[in-house]
Amino acid sequence: MNGHASQRGEPTSVGIIANPAAGKDVRRLVALASTFDNQEKVRIVRRVLAALAALGIERVWYLRDSFGIVERAAEGMTQRLDIRPVPIPCTFTATDSERAAAWLAEQRVACLVTLGGDGTNRVVARSCRDLPLVPIATGTNNVFPFLVDGTIAGVAAGLLASGRLPDCLQRWPRLEVWIDGTLADIALIDVAVSRERFLGARAIWDPTSIEQVIVARVLPGVIGLAAIAAAVCPRQDHGGATVKLGPGGTTALAPLAPGLLVPVPVRDWEPLSPDHAVPIETIPCTLALDGERELRIERAEQVLVRLSAAGPLVLDPRLALQEAARSGALLIPPLAL
């Protein structure tokens, strides 16, 4: 088998980062988003661990969090699994996820299972380099991660880690924010340019202050600011796009949050190809990355948002199981029964 993990340093080692704060932003108050409480995250991780153990994975590295999601999930497990915390000092902030992803990439674990939303995966993607991600949706908009049961995600991660999965990893694009020639941050879904001067509530859902939205991929059926691009940009290749908001064009009815459909005036839009950059002309401004206000820019000579094809490696659990069925990776030899 051409398993990706067979070429890595620890072929039976998998990482887990579960964000206890994911899915708890202000959009719960203004929309009808689903709630993934921490007890449910514990149950999801327990199913991931059970699947990894069934696939013969020997070791799981996990990031400690303020709720103890993985520790609670591991309580009472009868399967043999060496579960260890990532050896980094924890501040219980987003910085932990970034540092843990970098450490796991250095250790060359087979893949990293994440529990969170778009913001969680953006932080992980900053430092995970070529460490494949298996993202499980427990956030708000969940454009990047997959809404999939932990069992299926665990099976996919286990097949990859044990070298039984044909290579079906996908390289997804990312958006890079360059300020005066320096890479300031990245986004996996969209970058929104806002006139608001203060970060305030980090989550953004009101389009009235937004002048422009740049998306990494035009995908139908998404929720959030990327839904504006999906409504007005009929791209069959799912490439990127930049959308300018305001009167004088058309109006798109877009689901900016779960259960929240908003008419959004759109002046113009253009397709965006890899390695092309969009200049940001509104300065000062605030940039929202993947739906959350992150960067306040008061002064700059040049601000660019560049679409890069060199985003994170992603394992789609359903695609992984489809490929496993084709290759016979889930079949048990008669003598093993």
Rank of each mutant, 00 (worst) to 15 (best):
P85W: 00
A309Q: 13
C128Q: 10
E176H: 11
L260N: 02
L330S: 03
I297W: 02
R72F: 00
I83Q: 00
V30H: 09
R47A: 06
A22H: 01
R43P: 02
T251E: 15
G9T: 09
Q79M: 02
L175M: 14
R8T: 03
L32I: 07
A110F: 06
S127Y: 05
V264C: 12
A203C: 01
A227H: 04
A22E: 01
V124C: 04
M77N: 03
A184I: 00
E211P: 15
E98M: 12
L337C: 14
S273M: 02
R171E: 09
A156S: 13
A254I: 12
D237R: 04
A22N: 02
P333V: 07
R296G: 10
E281D: 12
V177S: 14
D316C: 10
G240M: 11
F146L: 08
V305F: 04
L104M: 15
G154D: 09
R197N: 10
D275Y: 07
T251D: 14
E281G: 08
P234A: 13
A187E: 10
L287P: 09
C111Q: 07
D130A: 06
I136T: 05
L289R: 13
A161P: 06
T114L: 11
A110H: 08
L261S: 13
R296N: 08
R235W: 07
F92S: 10
T282Q: 15
A288Q: 08
R84F: 05
S13F: 09
R197D: 08
L188K: 13
L330T: 10
Q79I: 01
S162A: 04
